[in-house]
């Protein structure tokens, strides 16, 4: 016959599926006559015993996806993990400098606003190839000659 302490230990083993047949027989004999241990069994099932009844997640040694496998098999060295916060600070500081420089250079070379539509038309004419000066002079000469005096 087992005592309360042994019975309660066996109850925890039973909750986690670790009790063999002889232990089960001894426990059954005790539980039949012990209300305290039956109450402990109920309490344990609602307490620590829940850890045994939780749905088992996939075991970590099942083949994980490649990314997970890589992380699990090749964990970063300790020095790299310890320097990670420092590296993050340095990166954010460098990013801040870059943003500041970009803002300053942007203010120095402010783009000129687009010209009004009329100027844009002039610009278009100006960019077209003008007639040769000789031709213009020749036209003017013809016009001058054609004007009656």
């Amino acid at each position: 016959m087992i005592d309360h302490e042994q019975a309660q230990e066996l109850l925890t083993l039973r909750a986690f599926g670790e009790m063999d047949e002889s232990e089960a027989n001894r426990l059954a004999l005790h539980l039949g006559s012990c209300a305290d241990c039956r109450r402990f069994d109920q309490e344990f099932a609602q307490g620590i015993g829940r850890l045994a009844k939780l749905e088992d997640p996939p075991r970590a040694d099942a083949t994980p996806p490649p990314s997970v496998r890589r992380v699990g098999v090749h964990p970063a060295p300790a020095w790299r993990r310890r320097l990670a916060p420092l590296a993050a600070c340095a990166a954010s500081f460098a990013a801040g400098i870059c943003v500041t420089l970009a803002i300053h250079s942007g203010s120095e070379s402010t783009p000129t606003p687009p010209p009004p539509p009329s100027q844009r038309v002039e610009g278009t004419f100006a960019r077209e190839s003008p007639p040769p000066l000789a031709t213009t002079l020749g036209v003017l000469t013809v016009m001058a000659r054609s004007v009656p005096r």
């Binding site: 302490e5 309660q8 083993l13 670790e18 309490e43 620590i48």
Partner: peptide, 17 residues
């Protein structure tokens, strides 16, 4: 090992109580 595990469970259950 069974004793270690069972005693750990009983102690944790007592803490929980």
């Amino acid at each position: 090992v069974k004793t270690h595990f069972a005693r750990a469970c009983v102690r944790l259950q007592a803490s929980l109580r």
